[in-house]
Structures are given as C-alpha cells and as structure tokens.
Amino acid sequence: MKKDNTKYYLTLPAAFLLIGTTIVPILYMLYTSLFRLDPVVFNKTWPFVGLQNFIDLFTKDPMFWSSLRRTLTFLIYTVTPQIFVGLFLAALLYREFKGKRFVQTILLFPILATPIVVAMVWKYFFDFDTGFLNVFLQKIGLQPQPWLSTRGLPLFANIPFVGSWLVNKFNLTYAFRTIVFVNFWQWTPFCFLVLYSGMTSLPAEVYEAAGIDGASGWQAFRHITLPLLKRIIWAVVFIRVIDCLKVYAQIWVLFGNAESTRVINIHLYTLGFTTSEYGMTSALGVVIIMLISLFVGITIKLGGKKDA
C-alpha cells in the first residue's frame, strides 16, 4: 500500500510540469479548434462554429490537400536516400581506420547545429549570383544551378508529353530538390549513427561464420547484416517520418511559404503566423496530431506482429 503511493509521489514533479506546460496548451488547442478565432475577435466573444474549421480545412482551404500531398512526396524523397546513404556510411565506417573518430564527430555536428543559423547559411550558399555553390561550380567550369527557382528539373521536364505533368504531380523542381538536399544534409548523419550503432551491437560470431564460409563483404552485408538490421531500419524510418513532419526553419528561411515548397507544417505556420487564423491553426494542429498518432499506431501494430 505504501509503495503504491510512493511511485506516484516520485512522478509528481514531472507530471505536474507535463500537465502545466504540455497538456494544458494541447487542451486549449483542442478547445480553440471549435471557434472562429482570429485577432479581430480574440478579445471579444468567440463565435462557436463547431466542426466548421475542420470542414473548411477539408473543403475550402486551397492549400490543405496539396500541401498534404507535397508532404508525402517530401517524405519519400528525403527518407529514402537518407536510409540508403546512412546504411552505406555505416558499412563504410564499420571497419577500423585512422581518423575514424574524427569522421564520426564531423557527422554528429549537423544533427545538433542550431537550425536557424544553419538555415541562414544555406540561404547564403544557394544564392544564384553570389552564393557559394554557384561561384564554386563556375570556378570548376560547370553551369551555375538555379537552386531556388521553381522551374522543373530539366531531366524530368524535358520528357515529351508527360514532362510538365510529372513535374507538377511529383514536385520535381529545383526548389524542391533544394529543400530535400538541405534535409538530407542535416539528417543523413543521424540515420548513419543509429544504423552504425545497430551494426556494432550485432554479435561478432555471425561475421566470423560468414568469413569461414568465404562470403564476400557484400554478400555478408546483404544476407546477414541487413536482415538483422531490419527492425532498426524501421525504427529510423519511423523517427525520420515524424521529424520530417516537423520541419520548419530550413524551408521557411529559404522559401517562406511559397506554394511549391509548402509542406503541411509550413502551411500550419502560415495559418498561425502569416494570416493569424488561430481557430484554423488549432484545427490543423489537431489533424496533424491525429495523422501522426495514426501513423504511430500502424507502425507499432505492424512492428508488434513482426516481433511475434
């Protein structure tokens, strides 16, 4: 009986802080999603609109569905190469060599660097005329790239008949490639790190066995390491997807809320800060939380089945 109470007392400070600083604002968000709320009515009586904000979001908001679709392509474009390059780097750094610790340290840094500072540096790097990248490209004799242009990538746009359709449907523009690249730069090291520590925690015997069998490095990787890493790869995908939904500073500093790069979180910031529609913002916030929860639920369910 006594023990029962103690365990609650121990959680008291944390629970108190969590309720005060997290649950209360979220409840407030839920509440405000039911009102038409903007600066003009904020300090007066709020017109209760029920679920109208949600209905408006789904039916009238010109950007909701398009930004949702764009988020999906963004997820696919960013997470896939990050996992592959992350795996590649993990396999590359698996062996011992001089300067390994240094390389690891370098790779740690982008994950933790202050987002607003990094975003401003990218803004400087990508400038067409004075940006570092184009000056560099020209120095080594290549064509400068319009990194921030919303033009379709020539590789796809020049495909006859379907080119422009492809570009529009799958966001194959320079600008989109740029935000994918920035995200890639920042988060590939994270994928590498997790996959690497997953690999180092695998029992050494499996490799020894493979070595005796005469399996080449690639075969060992393909048939032994990869299957054992499966669970961790899924965990990385899972974390990356959630983080990608929260991406903000990189896109906002480079492109503002331009339509061609507007993913769902940027749309949320637009509603909240540019047009100050607090009711709609809350409604979209609720929708995002529900989408992520759904995603979390599905992954946990699938993951659970796999384990069993």
């Binding site: 242009s149 331009a258 061609s260 540019t274």
Partner: peptide, 22 residues
C-alpha cells in the same frame, strides 16, 4: 481591410503562379 493578411496570402500565390508557371 481587417482580413488583409489573408488576402495577401492568396495574392502571393497568384503572383507566384504568374511568374513561375505556364
């Protein structure tokens, strides 16, 4: 007008469409 910023949001997309699409 009191819905100024929301109007701008719509006009912004229009200008972008004119300048960046066909």
């Amino acid at each position: 007008v009191p819905y100024y910023s929301k109007m701008h949001e719509i006009l912004n997309q229009m200008v972008a469409d004119i300048l960046t699409t066909n």
